[in-house]
């Protein structure tokens, strides 16, 4: 009797992740607009990884640079506990 494991239904995760910047045609990520950047940062103010947000490498680097600039200008905290 062979063990057949039933197919694991995970459609929540394996729906095709897409890069929201390519999809909506955003070309420039502004470091001066903290509300937009908050979407890419978790509660502690740390950058979200690409595997969660699904952004492409090119735009993940731009998001990272924009967030770091915003942190430098104290528009966003380096570390906090209740950001959202």
């Amino acid at each position: 009797m062979t063990l057949i494991n039933e197919t694991v239904v995970r459609n929540a995760e394996n729906r095709k992740k897409y890069c929201r910047f390519k999809k909506s045609g955003i070309k420039y990520i502004d470091y001066k607009d903290p509300n937009f950047l908050l979407k890419f940062v978790n509660e502690q103010g740390k950058l979200l990884p690409r595997r969660l947000t699904g952004t492409s490498l090119k735009f993940q680097r731009r998001v990272a640079q924009a967030v770091k600039r915003a942190r430098h200008l104290a528009l966003m905290p380096y570390v906090t506990d209740a950001l959202k």
Partner: peptide, 9 residues
């Protein structure tokens, strides 16, 4: 500015 929509392009 008011709604601060994030539709930068």
């Amino acid at each position: 500015k008011k709604t601060e929509t994030s539709t930068e392009a």
